[in-house]
């Protein structure tokens, strides 16, 4: 069995003169939680629509569990791959349970509707009409719909839209459970980068239809040469004399500096040097970046 759940190979898609995807190469390992991030209009939803055969690629190959799309779509749609794309849409005049039955009409298996509704916390609202559901409830019903065919791959486009903080936490726990205990692969696109950073094993950053970077979250955040020094006021020149570059004073009075590297030994030596020269250091630590900062830096780099 292949270790690859999803593969894009040189995939391009144009809408008129607008390039939505430009020779995209992407490999999503089986069993991973793969974050797909990018600004609005970056091409995320286009890539996801290709995975469901809702669009046809102009060039390149898209495959799901080794089945090339769209030819292999009948083998995977519903039973191997399920998901949410943009806002979850339902029949407002049907109840939550009736909606699940309506969308399961094309699936060969008979889903456990009660089990799915219980899983997303909608048991009590199961027989209420969806037109009375909040956005958060519809998102949860959307996840239940995505699981109708018990798919191995779950594609979630902005799944936390409309969820309250408690809902976001339970959503995070749910997708972690799906990958760790059920062996599913989750491909998730979201603007909540802090959430993705906590939950994703791999991430790809996309902009203007191109994949700018991909890898583990740690790889994307990468190492930084920036160090934060708390050393009192008016020490910029002294820090430069100690070998610091690009010295900037921050709003809290600390200094953000660059060193040649941020290894433990370099920091010890630098600290010794400052103390030896009478600079009162109260704190000195590597300026750790988060996914959001890395994302903004990569996007800014692609725009310049």
């Amino acid at each position: 069995m292949s270790d690859t759940a999803i593969e894009f190979s040189g995939v391009s898609k144009h809408f008129g003169s607008n390039v939505a995807l430009d020779a995209v190469d992407l490999v999503v390992p089986r069993g991973s939680i793969f974050g797909f991030i990018g600004p609005n209009g970056a091409g995320k939803t286009t890539a996801i629509r290709l995975l469901f055969g809702l669009l046809k690629a102009d060039q390149g190959l898209v495959s799901v569990l080794g089945n090339q799309l769209p030819a292999g779509l009948p083998k995977v749609a519903g039973t191997q791959i399920g998901g949410i794309i943009e806002e979850p849409q339902f029949y407002p005049f049907l109840s939550g349970r009736q909606n699940l039955k309506a969308f399961a009409a094309g699936i060969s298996t008979r889903p456990d509707y009660d089990g799915l509704l219980a899983r997303v916390g909608l048991t009590e609202a199961a027989d209420r009409k969806v037109k009375g559901y909040s956005l958060g409830m519809r998102q949860r019903l959307g996840i239940a719909r995505a699981l109708l065919g018990d798919p191995q791959i779950l594609i979630l486009d902005e799944p936390t839209n409309g969820l309250d903080p408690e809902g976001i936490i339970s959503f995070r726990e749910m997708i972690e459970h799906m990958t760790q205990h059920e062996g599913r692969t989750v491909f998730v696109s979201s603007h909540l980068l802090a959430e993705l950073e906590q939950v994703c094993t791999q991430v790809a950053i996309v902009n203007h239809g191109k994949v700018l970077a991909s890898g583990t979250v740690a790889e994307l955040i990468g190492t930084t040469s920036q160090v934060v020094v708390h050393a009192g006021i008016g020490q910029a020149v002294a820090l430069e004399n100690a070998g610091a570059r690009q010295v900037k004073q921050q709003a809290d009075g600390s200094y953000l500096i660059s060193l040649d590297d941020t290894s433990e030994q370099t920091l010890i030596n630098f600290n010794k040097h400052l103390i030896h020269n009478g600079i009162p250091v109260s704190q000195l630590h590597v300026n750790t970046r988060n996914l959001e900062e890395s994302f903004l830096q990569i996007i800014a780099g692609s725009e310049s």
Binding site: G78, I81, I85, F103, L148
Partner: peptide
């Protein structure tokens, strides 16, 4: 927008 979910369901 329900058509896409019917198609996604197989």
């Amino acid at each position: 927008g329900t058509q896409r979910y019917l198609l996604m369901g197989g």
